[in-house]
Amino acid sequence: MKIFGIRLPRMSSLILWGLLWEIIGRIEFSFFVPPLSAVFATLFEIIGTAAFQKAMYETSYAFISGVFFAIVIGIPTGIIMGKNRLIDELLLPWVNIFLSAPLTALVPVLMVLFGFGMKSIIITTTLFAIWIIILNARAGVMQINRSLIEMAHSFGASSWEAFSKIYFWAALPEILGGVRIGVIRAVKGVIIGQLLISIVGFGALFELYSANFLMKHFWAVLIVLFALAFTISEVLAYLERRVSYYAAKR
């Protein structure tokens, strides 16, 4: 965007919204909206606290484990579905149902099954991420050039070699696209899981702050989470652009 001939950096409009927030806070419009400057002051205060760091650690742990399982289970499942008609027929309806299902509603069931702790949060994160990863890996495999497979076969490739040397690489751009969307969904999963199981990580913090009407603290943590989610998604988009450079040359 350009104003008075000066090119403004991306998202500079955020400054305007920040100012508006500050003003609304200053005129004490509502107890729930403290001034932005006060929120930031609180943010720097709580970042050093043990409670915040524990929440951060637990969230990262749940997020990374959840994404790890989604990728490690999702990619091979998708590839196998793309290769095998029968398995595809069996699994595809479920993948599609779970992809569009309101997974939040499942979290209470998971809590009953796996307890009120880390395990349920990791599983929630995995469930949010895995379906799109499966579908994309499957789509990547289905568009493979048939003659690459025949080529590998004609030179005596075993099934494992075909999988690791042909299918995986040929489907890589689609797989990475799926991982990017999956990771963004995992961010939602890990937060929703923590909010519903409010004794771990940021869930516990939110519970603490809102129960005590610490609105500045509440907003500060929210801003941290939004910023993290946004950064992760931008980094992945950057990586994906680099891979699609090669994909365009296939």
Partner: peptide, 18 residues
Amino acid sequence: GPGPDRAFVFQDFALLPW
């Protein structure tokens, strides 16, 4: 099945793009 005594040259090359 395929064997080491035969090698195939494909009409569409079948090269690994990566």
